[in-house]
Simulated assay, not measured.
Amino acid sequence: MQDFTSIPIVDLAQDKQKVAALVRRACCESGFFYIVNHGVDAALQERLEKLSHAFFQKDEAYKMRWRMALGGKAWRGYFPVGGELTSGKPDLKEGLYLGTELPADHPKVKAAVPLHGANLFPDLPGFKDSILSYMDAVTNLGHRLMEIMGLSLGLSADYFHKHYTQDPLILFRIFHYPPDPKPQSTESWGVGEHTDYGLLTILKQDDCGGLQVKSRSHWVDAPPVKDSFVCNIGDMLDRMTGGLYKSTPHRVKNVSGRNRYSYPLFFDPGFDTEVKALPLAKVEQDDREERWDKASVHAFQGTYGDYVLSKVSKVFPDLKQDVLEKKP
């Protein structure tokens, strides 16, 4: 892990090779970067924000009509404040889990493959259409960014699409962080220190702030930047690059005194895709002792589905028992 003091801003309107060089530098130094001129419609983002606020302002009984226990193996739906764990501790947030909308006759749904299926859409007018439109727009952006990521590593622009993301696993979250009742406490966190699991996270955050990224010697704020997304790499890209690109720990604490909303979309390898080191990668010395979870991503062998299920089952242990381990 390197020492850095700020998160760089990358303008996607620049020449693609220049963008690739900037992304490479960001991934080697901090694992995080902002993007501007990304092309995702501002009006669509505004609709998503208004509808999300409307949903989370409803009472608990209303929101629990779309609770995750009703989503089955698709792992979709609502969870209340404290319902998600990080390193075994409840997060000070509530959320709505979503993903690629698949019909009942889709082969992976018929085969009961976890994390695949239909979403549980709250019955707010326009919510379903806005969510699906937003997910499509940011997924397309994800494909564009992975082309840049390929170029940044000296690979072809279509390398990741050919080998990992022709059918990406897309998971989308809408999170609401209420004001932290103990803003000075180091015991409570909106979400505790963690790394993301897959390839690339594309985060829309509001103007409240609270996101922090771990540098070698201190935590660095990632404050809101107007009309931007925050991007960060996940464990699988760390593994693929042999540690050249690090999945950097980050956390959230809402000390704004206001309700904070964030919208991460996880653009990840296909569920059944075996994740291997890239041809160019030389695995660095095992870094498990430096990692927040004391686990080596470089020792992992298997598909992305194997990896993500091993992680998600720790986040929602009750669902793991009731859904994944329940026999038909």
Rank of each mutant, 00 (worst) to 15 (best):
P183M: 13
P328A: 06
M236K: 00
K16C: 06
N140W: 02
V230G: 02
G190V: 08
A20T: 05
N254K: 12
L141T: 02
R65M: 11
E60R: 15
H161I: 08
K314Q: 14
P168K: 04
P178L: 07
K204Q: 15
A21Y: 09
T5M: 04
L309P: 10
G72V: 08
H161V: 08
T139D: 04
G99R: 10
K50L: 13
P90G: 08
H176A: 10
P107Q: 07
Q17F: 10
K18M: 08
G82F: 14
R260N: 06
I9G: 12
G99D: 13
C231F: 00
V308A: 05
V81I: 14
N259D: 15
Y97P: 05
C208G: 07
F160R: 05
Y78K: 09
F4M: 01
F33M: 06
F172E: 03
K326A: 13
F266M: 03
V312M: 13
L265N: 04
K89P: 08
I148E: 01
S152W: 07
D59R: 11
A43F: 10
D268V: 01
L51T: 12
D227P: 10
T248Y: 05
G71C: 06
L237Y: 01
Q17W: 04
C28Y: 02
E193G: 05
G305F: 10
G257N: 06
P328M: 03
F32H: 07
K282G: 03
E101C: 01
D3I: 02
K93F: 09
A21P: 07
L171V: 14
V312P: 06
G242M: 00
I131N: 06
W219N: 09
E284Q: 03
Y304H: 11
S313Q: 15
V10G: 08
W75A: 08
Y197D: 05
W75I: 12
Q301E: 14
A295F: 01
Q205D: 12
L153Q: 12
K162Y: 00
I131M: 15
G88L: 09
L22S: 14
A61H: 12
K50D: 14
L22R: 13
E101S: 10
P317N: 13
W189T: 06
E290R: 01
V191H: 13
F56L: 08
G126H: 06
Y34M: 06
A20S: 14
G71E: 13
I202K: 00
A21M: 09
I233G: 01
E94T: 11
S256G: 03
L199R: 02
W75E: 08
K108Y: 11
T241K: 03
T139R: 02
L211T: 04
D105M: 07
L324R: 11
E29G: 00
K294C: 00
T86V: 15
N259P: 05
G72P: 05
D180P: 09
V297Y: 00
Q301Y: 04
P317T: 13
G270R: 01
L265H: 04
H53V: 14
P178A: 11
F32L: 02
K226V: 14
K50C: 10
A104K: 13
